[in-house]
């Protein structure tokens, strides 16, 4: 396999020590400069060596590392991403100032080293995965005159807010099912009853015309309380995440149901249109 020409190539001998990481710094520098000059002989030899040596660990008995390793890895990625992006991206529209994002970020990052931090981050990650938040570029919508419901436009913002809620001691969650006009639609609300903030996810709701919006309702003691409006105007927006501020619901027992109806743009004081999503608390 070695041609005469290759044999004369003086760098070829350095390939093996190089892939093993055993060239002294002087030789390594020289060899790397040689590679950078575009030597195809050495480059090909390196590829062959790398390929062959990568086979060697295949002789070991394969073993899946513990699940938590992967969870930690992704927790690290999420938190690294948040620290790097929170500075430039987080002063985004819509989010209220009294919920400073950076505090939560730091809290997670500084506690990260501890087991507890890992645990929180892992659990949060699992839930985020379970909610299918990995869909990219989530989206825009709307806020009401009351600013009660705000679209979480970036993945970072979504994770941020989810982590904050997931870190609280009590989390409540209600699933919402698609009704007659949109049987394949569904939604989830989970919230921190103490801080009264919630994440609201909607999926596969039909797009609505310009003059319409969806409205979220909290049904408590037979009363239907408006909790914000949002729109689905593009395919992208069919998978959306919102933050609901001041969700005045202490616990599931407090409410009978959450509902989403279609209303004229801006919302109605009381529901007038069909129910698209309904999640009752008594059922779960």
């Amino acid at each position: 396999m070695t041609t005469k020409q290759e044999e004369r190539h003086k760098y070829l001998d350095l390939c093996i020590p190089y892939v093993f990481g055993r060239l002294n710094p002087g030789n390594r520098k020289q060899f790397e400069a040689h590679l950078a000059s575009g030597c195809e002989v050495c480059s090909a030899e390196l590829a062959r060596l790398n390929e062959a040596l990568a086979l060697f660990p295949l002789t070991l008995k394969q073993e899946q590392p513990h699940r938590k390793v992967k969870e930690r890895l992704f927790a690290r990625i999420v938190s690294a991403k948040r620290t790097s992006e929170s500075r430039r991206e987080l002063p985004r529209r819509g989010l209220k100032k009294e919920t400073p994002i950076t505090m939560a970020t730091e809290a997670v990052v500084t506690s990260q080293r501890s087991w507890f931090g890992y645990a929180i981050a892992s659990v949060a990650l699992l839930i985020i995965v379970a909610l299918g938040i990995y869909t990219n570029d989530l989206i825009i919508t709307v806020d009401t005159q009351e600013q009660k419901i705000v679209a979480l436009q970036t993945e970072v913002a979504q994770r941020e807010e989810m982590l904050k809620i997931l870190q609280s001691q009590h989390i409540e969650m209600v699933l919402m099912n698609g009704m007659e006009p949109s049987p394949s639609g569904y939604g989830k609300i989970f919230w921190d009853p103490v801080k009264k903030t919630a994440i609201f996810q909607v999926s596969q709701l039909p797009m609505v015309p310009e003059d319409k919006e969806y409205q979220l309702w909290v049904i408590r003691k037979g009363e239907k309380l408006p909790a914000g409006v949002f729109a689905v105007r593009s395919e992208k927006e069919q998978e959306s995440y919102f933050k609901i501020m001041n969700l005045n619901v202490e616990s599931k027992k407090d409410v009978e149901a959450f509902a989403v109806t279609l209303e004229p743009k801006g919302g109605s004081p009381q529901p007038t249109g069909s129910i698209y999503l309904l999640g009752t608390t008594s059922l779960d």
Binding site: P57, Q62, E63, P65, H66, V69, L73, R76, I77
Partner: peptide, 30 residues
């Protein structure tokens, strides 16, 4: 991971170190 993990264990001899290495590798990939 099922190949890399035993490789790391084989070299550093402890599972803890190997798990850390595995994470570092994929962070680097990321």
């Amino acid at each position: 991971a099922p190949v890399l993990y035993p490789l790391a264990v084989r070299i550093v001899a402890t599972r803890e170190d190997a798990e850390e290495i595995l994470q570092e590798v994929f962070l680097q990939v990321w």
